[in-house]
Amino acid sequence: MRGVEGGGTSGPAGGGLKGAAAAEWVRLVHSGSTWWGLGVSGALALGVAALTARVAPGDEEPATVADAVSGTLFGQLILLVLAVLAMTSEHRSGTIRLAFQAIQGRWQVVAAKAAVLGGAGGAVGLVYGFAAVGLGSLLAPAGLDLAPDTATEWRQVASLGLIYAVTAVIGVAIGTLVRTSAGGVSAALVWILVLESAVGLVPRVGDAMARWMPFSVLVSLTDSAKIDKPFGAVGAAVYCSAVAVAVLALALAVVRKRKL
């Protein structure tokens, strides 16, 4: 056995946000669902890009960059679910207790998870966005331009990084707040698929509220040429990031207060 170290004060450090992030990376890399999720969302992103390039649009308008990257939005849903599960599965397996034993300040466990998944998710979103337009332009027949040229088109591709990152952070926050896998995944899917569109049906204020729904604003960064009022593109990006930070802050506050 190694010599006993002085109560953890000497010797290599460890713990805190850094330890929690390192552990989350280990978990992420060694979980099968990470690779399945990456594979399926990658296939969908590229598949839609290929279809966009090859399937003749008939007499409709020609395909755009936004069409080429639209397949990445399936991946966004997958990422949302995986981010929720990243947190809820710790509760189900009991490993959250080991993490809390090792990391002082429980909020750090959640914050590190959000950072790792947000960072990794953002990188994946960027890669898939550019891979989609890359494949699209490669396969596109003469006369169809799927490569980003204008500032708007660059924004439509590059914003996928932000879209994925924000989605991952919100997923982790939901998983932290809800804790059970079924409940967390349902809450996340109801939010993104039902609530955001149903809100428009509310009489009078519905339309105004719909413009503030974070996932709708987020997705408009990639699928709209013009961002609806009250945002410009930068405003939309800032607003969505702020929503993610706020939901995460709520989750961190809750995890600090509540019993295990």
Binding site: G14, G15, G19, S31, S93, G94, T95, R97, Q101, Q104
Partner: peptide, 21 residues
Amino acid sequence: LDAPLRTVGALLDAGWARSRN
């Protein structure tokens, strides 16, 4: 404690593990 596992090692429930890992 800074890095608690270096001071206190605890086995409270051997079931606390991801079964697929």
